[in-house]
Amino acid sequence: MRIAVIGAGDIGGTLALRWARLGHEVRLANSRGPRTLSALVAGTPVVAAPLGEVAAGAEAVVLSIPFGAVAALPRTVVASCPADAVVVDTGNYVPHRRDAVIDAIEAGQVESMWVAERLGRPVVKAFNTIGAASLRDKALPAGAPGRVAAPVAGDSEPDLRVVSTLVDDAGFDPLTAGPLATSWRQQPGTPVYTADLPLAEAVTALAAADPGLTAAWRAAWRS
């Protein structure tokens, strides 16, 4: 699969390297240009690309940038990929510590619904519940006992299948978590968030989620 990863931090960089080693064609970009990625991609199949070119021809575009930076991402970056490409949102809104306050989300809008509006196209929510250290250290082959589950939420069945394959390839059990409007169940503060749960327990955790938990998590960052 041709994959574009936007953001070369702990999440984006780890995913790009892992997918490329499995034979996917991966291009990686950040806001500072390909030269700043040379050390990360050296000796790997990952191709460092300019931000404006990274998504061209991609079948999947993975956003792994600070949540608030989505608003500043030129729409042309994602728009350059084919119309049927899947766009994956891996981000979490962290106001007061990292992201500027976003009034719509503070008023209750689901985080990834806001992202979809900013980009002007549908997205799938995935990889946001696994911390960087777990993403790096807890990947396991399919069928391995205790394999960590990763919820995948979106409105298109074909898109969900594509992203579930990418989750599996990354070393985690994909868990179909419903439409994008219910992806609040995997936002920060909910039972599944950074809990590193196996599949059956992750299903239970999603069902137990309450929107107020994310609001409480955000409030804790203000103190």
Rank of each mutant, 00 (worst) to 15 (best):
Arg97Tyr: 00
Asp99Phe: 05
Ile102Gly: 11
Asp103Gly: 11
Glu111Leu: 13
Met113Tyr: 00
Trp114Glu: 13
Val115Met: 12
Leu119Met: 12
Leu119Trp: 04
Gly120Leu: 08
Gly120His: 11
Pro122Glu: 15
Pro122Gly: 10
Val124Ala: 05
Val124Pro: 01
Asn128Arg: 06
Asn128Cys: 11
Asn128Glu: 08
Asn128Ile: 09
Leu135His: 02
Arg136Asp: 11
Asp137Asn: 04
Lys138Ser: 07
Lys138Leu: 13
Leu140Tyr: 01
Pro141Thr: 10
Ala142Trp: 01
Gly143Phe: 10
Ala144Met: 08
Pro145Leu: 13
Gly146Leu: 06
Arg147Cys: 13
Arg147Gln: 07
Val148Leu: 07
Val148Trp: 02
Ala149Lys: 01
Ala149Cys: 04
Ala150Met: 12
Pro151Asp: 08
Val152Cys: 08
Val152Asp: 03
Ala153Ile: 04
Ala153Cys: 14
Asp155Trp: 04
Ser156Tyr: 06
Glu157Pro: 05
Pro158Thr: 12
Arg161Asp: 15
Arg161Glu: 15
Val162Thr: 14
Val167Cys: 04
Val167Glu: 03
Asp168Met: 14
Phe172Trp: 03
Ala177Pro: 02
Gly178Pro: 01
Pro179Leu: 10
Pro179Asn: 06
Pro179Val: 10
Ala181Arg: 02
Ser183Met: 09
Trp184Tyr: 12
Trp184Leu: 05
Trp184Gln: 03
Pro188Trp: 08
Pro191Arg: 12
Val192Gly: 07
Tyr193Gly: 04
Tyr193Asn: 10
Tyr193Glu: 05
Thr194Trp: 11
Asp196Pro: 02
Asp196Tyr: 05
Ala200Gln: 06
Ala202Asp: 00
Val203Gln: 12
Ala205Gln: 02
Leu206Lys: 06
Leu206Cys: 07
Leu206Arg: 03
Ala207His: 00
Asp210Lys: 11
Leu213His: 08
Thr214Phe: 14
